[in-house]
């Protein structure tokens, strides 16, 4: 959670979800779709955007209803709200993007039990006003989208020799099939977290040095 002593701003909440508390690389939430659908970059983008849509609207409505929902039945209430938006996006995809829906399959319906959405509902939307909750949903959702898109680009590059469906590897490249399986997802995720933690550490080190100089 962001520091409660400071006043939350729309931009600050948005950036918190996008970078500081990135759901995939920092909170390690939503690992099921992260490992399940990230075999192609297009899957990553669409899964991320579908989740963002649900996250923004469920955050908004839970925040609006936060003083009405009784504490004891809040989890079932959240599920009803979340499931409504998942059903909407599922039916919309079936109508307008049937091919993509066929690839993502049951993972779209599984957004209902995605722990990022639950975590944000419980720890943010239930305590904060609607505008901030929308910012949190947008930040978290786009943070998730960017993370799993990066992950799926790396996996698609090595597992199929292409990025967003365009072949980039030379014709003699033999795809590494393990990257299309769950172990490949775990390995890629672990390696990417090494890189991201190293970058964070370097940035923190630089920040400290600058403070020391000033």
């Amino acid at each position: 959670m962001a520091d409660t002593s400071k006043k939350l701003t729309f931009w600050g909440t948005f950036m918190n979800g996008l970078v500081t508390e990135n759901p995939t690389f920092t909170l390690m939430l939503g690992m099921c779709p992260t490992l399940g659908v990230t075999t192609a970059a297009m899957n990553g983008v669409s899964m991320g955007l579908a989740t963002t849509f649900v996250l923004v609207f469920s955050n908004l409505f839970i925040s609006l209803l936060r003083n009405i929902i009784p504490d004891k039945v809040r989890i079932p209430s959240y599920i009803v709200i979340i499931a409504s938006f998942v059903t909407m996006i599922d039916l919309m995809m079936q109508a307008y993007l049937p091919d993509l829906r066929a690839v993502l399959g049951t993972y779209i319906q599984l957004i209902v039990v995605n722990c990022i959405i639950f975590a944000r509902a419980e720890s943010f939307a239930a305590k904060n006003p609607p505008a901030l909750s929308v910012a949190d949903g947008l930040g978290m959702g786009l943070g998730f989208t960017i993370s799993i898109t990066l992950l799926s680009m790396v996996r698609e590059l090595f597992g199929s020799g292409s990025v967003f469906g365009y072949t980039v590897m030379p014709a003699s490249y033999q795809p590494m099939a393990i990257m299309n399986m769950v172990p490949g997802g775990f390995i890629t995720l672990g390696l990417m977290m090494i890189v991201i933690n190293a970058i964070k550490k370097m940035a923190a080190g630089r920040g400290r040095r600058e403070e020391g100089l000033a």
């Binding site: 033999q174 590494m176 099939a177 393990i178 990257m179 399986m181 172990p183």
Partner: peptide, 10 residues
């Protein structure tokens, strides 16, 4: 194991 799963035909 990784080689075997990745490039089974080779």
């Amino acid at each position: 194991a990784v080689l075997f799963i990745s490039w089974g035909s080779i």
